[in-house]
Amino acid sequence: MTKKIELLVGLFLLAGLLAFLALVYKVANVDVSTSSDTYTLRAEFTNIGGLKVRSPVKVGGVVVGRVSAISLDPEKLEPVVTMTMDKQYDKFPETSSVSVLTSGLLGEQYLGLTPGFMDDGISILKDGDRIDDTHSAMVLEDLIGQFLYSSKDK
């Protein structure tokens, strides 16, 4: 009787562990190496549109990091975006640019990172560096406004 209960409880705990592992590896696909293998970058925009914390940072469609914080610079009154980048992609030159992009017509917004040119005087972006070359989000209202003005000029 007790042996049977002990066996069943053992199986129960095992099943719980199994479910946990299944969720971690099959569903979340976790890289066990997390926090230590990242570095952060910052960038200032004039408008970030619908960008959110946890939005992906992509290079040519490959996710290389995520947005970890969004704040407003208290003096310049411009949004500052902090990105947590994967350490295995750490060869971006400081001439790289980031833009707020939209996946598809109605999709989520993400940061597109475009690597810049390499030259002798150009260094590699390191932890805590700032990307200067930024392109803000396209705002639909502004686009329509521009279109109207330009068509009036003609």
Partner: peptide
Amino acid sequence: ISMPLLSLMFVAVGV
């Protein structure tokens, strides 16, 4: 101890 384990099983089986 039991309920978190049960929740994990619930989610795993649900997925």
